[in-house]
């Protein structure tokens, strides 16, 4: 069963139609990349699915829950919204780490606030918080950042910051992890370390959707690629097929423009 189902999704900003009917599905454990030129709607699509924007019509289902359905009049409660929000994780282009917290605190802040909702929080507060610290430290170690636990974001390189923000999103155990151009704000020599981390997550069968301009990376890491153009999915298919045998003129033009 698909873990992500997007049906006939529309989104306008004022009079500009940004998404003009998007349909796709994603299976659990698969990696999908979204490519396309700027203004094609790929980031808006990601932001709608990650619930930072509310679409105008259509529906979005994540892991069995309907997170958006324009045909349903049912209002979600704050609690349901929160549960839906936690089903998806998002890694931003500009990291958006919290500057006043160190690496460990950045990763544990949301986990600790979530833990307060547990029924046994008051009773076992100490154990729960210690457990969270332990879990966070293990994840940070996996990213090779154990020696940076006490460092603040401003003391880290862009690549390190992005790795911390990946840990921060992973720590909440989302069903799907979204990446919005995760390497676009990085110097070329720093993109490698971030891509390596995403590659490792793919090997562990993390379900991911990646908006990217790194075509070689997209081909290597993704099962499927969606090519967006002017608010619609112009072409989609398996990663190799799509890049090696583009069918539409628009994709051919796009690939030749970026030198593929």
């Amino acid at each position: 069963m698909a873990i992500l189902e997007v049906k006939n999704l529309h989104k306008n900003f004022g009079k500009t139609q940004v998404l003009k009917g998007i349909d796709f599905e994603l299976e659990k454990g698969q990696v999908m990349s979204i490519i396309g030129s700027s203004g094609s709607g790929k980031t808006t699509l990601l932001r709608c699915v990650a619930q930072l924007e509310t679409a105008d019509s259509g529906s979005i289902k994540v892991d069995g829950s309907t997170i958006f359905d324009s045909n349903s009049s049912q209002k979600l409660t704050a609690d349901e919204k929160m549960k839906n929000q936690l089903k998806t994780g998002l890694v931003f282009q500009s990291f958006n780490l919290f500057p006043q917290y160190n690496v460990l605190e950045n990763v544990t802040l949301a986990m600790k606030l979530q833990a307060k909702r547990r029924a046994d929080y008051k009773e076992n507060k100490k154990e729960i918080l210690a457990e969270i610290d332990l879990k966070a430290k293990a994840l940070i170690a996996k990213m090779g950042l154990s020696d940076k636990l006490g460092n603040y974001p401003c003391e880290l390189s862009g690549g390190q910051q992005q790795r911390v923000s990946i840990v921060r999103a992973m720590a909440l155990e989302p069903s799907i992890l979204f990446f919005d151009e995760p390497t676009s704000a990085l110097d070329p020599e720093l993109t490698g370390e971030v891509l390596k981390v995403i590659r490792e997550l793919a090997e562990e069968n993390m379900t991911m959707v990646i908006v990217t301009h790194e075509m070689d990376f997209a081909r290597e890491v993704s099962d499927n690629i969606i090519f967006m153009d002017n608010g619609v999915i112009a072409e989609s298919g398996s990663a190799d097929d799509l890049i090696n045998n583009p069918q539409t003129d628009r994709l051919k033009a796009f690939l030749s423009k970026i030198g593929k």
Binding site: L52, Q85, L86, T88, N96, L109, A110, L113, L172
Partner: peptide, 13 residues
């Protein structure tokens, strides 16, 4: 705005 958005996607109220 990214700080608010980061808070939101991390499930903070």
């Amino acid at each position: 705005n990214g700080q608010y958005e980061a808070g939101q996607v991390l499930g903070l109220t």
